[in-house]
Simulated assay, not measured.
Amino acid sequence: MRERHEAHGARRAREFEAFVAGAAGRLLHTATLLTAEAPDDNPRARRLLTLALAETYTSWDGLRGEDPYDRARRGLATRFAHSAWHRYGLLGRHRPHSGSALAGLTPQQRLIIVLRLYEGVAEEQTAALLGLPAQRVQAICARATATLLHPPQDPAPAALEAEVAPS
C-alpha cells in the first residue's frame, strides 16, 4: 500500500513538473502583463505565479479532466484582482511606474485586456471570472483598447514650465 502511495506521489510530481516546464513561461508573462512590471524586474508577477502554481498543485488530483493551465490562469487573475482591490480600492487608480504600455491602464482594465486579448479568454468567461456582466467587460475592454491605441498626451514642456513658474 505504501509503495502504491509513493508511486502515485512520484507520478503526480512528474506530471506537475512537466506542466510547469511547459506553461510557466507563458504564465509568468501573463502575470508580468497584469502587474505592468518590467520583464526583468517583476517580483509581484513572480509572487502571483508562485501562489497560482501552488494552488494548482494542491488541487492537481482533483482536476479530473480540467485544464491545469486554465486553473492556473484563473488563479493568477483572481489573485491579481484581489490584490488590486485591497491595495488600490474599487477603481484601482494606481499606475505602476514602468515602461509597459499597459501601465497607463487601471488594474481592472489590464486584467480584462490581458485575459481577452493576450490569453484569448471569451468575453462571457472573463465576465464570469470577474463577476461582471458581459456588457461591462466589453465596455471596459473597448475603453482600455482605445487608451492603448490613443494614449493621453502629456502636457507640453512649455505648459509645464508655465504652471510651475512663479508669477
Rank of each mutant, 00 (worst) to 15 (best):
H5F: 13
S100Y: 04
G120N: 09
D67R: 02
S167P: 12
A52I: 00
H150M: 08
S98H: 02
E124L: 02
S98M: 01
L132I: 00
A144M: 08
E37G: 06
R93A: 14
L129V: 10
L102M: 00
P133G: 05
E66W: 05
S59R: 15
A162Q: 12
Q108S: 15
L33P: 07
A10W: 02
L132D: 03
T78N: 09
Q135I: 14
H94M: 06
D40C: 00
Q108L: 15
L49Y: 06
L102A: 06
V121D: 09
A144W: 03
L91T: 11
G65A: 02
L105V: 01
A144I: 03
L91A: 13
G92A: 09
T35W: 12
R79T: 09
L149Q: 10
S83W: 10
P96L: 09
A81D: 15
L117Q: 15
P133E: 01
P96W: 03
A13D: 02
A122I: 04
A18E: 00
S167F: 15
A81G: 09
Q109D: 13
E3P: 06
Q125A: 15
A156L: 15
A156N: 03
T35S: 09
A77F: 04
C141G: 13
T30L: 14
G75S: 08
P157S: 04
A7L: 12
R44Y: 12
T106E: 05
A165E: 11
E119C: 08
G65H: 01
A13R: 14
E55H: 09
A162L: 14
A24T: 04
E66Y: 03
S83I: 03
H94E: 07
L130P: 03
L132M: 12
V20I: 00
P152K: 01
F16Q: 05
E17C: 12
D61T: 09
A127L: 07
W85Q: 11
L160W: 14
A38K: 05
I112M: 07
E3T: 11
A38Y: 14
A122K: 05
Q153G: 02
E55L: 00
A45W: 00
L105S: 05
S98T: 00
A144K: 01
L51C: 06
L129Y: 03
G25H: 00
L91W: 09
L160C: 04
D41F: 15
E3R: 15
L28V: 05
P151E: 07
T145R: 02
F19A: 00
D70A: 15
D40L: 09
T145D: 15
W60C: 01
S100A: 00
E15L: 12
D154T: 13
L148T: 04
A52C: 02
T56K: 11
E6L: 12
L129G: 09
R116E: 14
L53I: 07
H8D: 11
H97V: 12
R47C: 06
I140Y: 01
D154A: 12
S59C: 10
R2S: 10
A162M: 08
V137N: 04
A122C: 03
D154F: 13
M1Q: 14
E17P: 11
A158L: 15
G99C: 04
P155N: 06
R2G: 11
A13I: 05
E66L: 05
L117V: 12
A146F: 06
G89P: 10
N42W: 06
H8A: 14
R46K: 10
H82W: 14
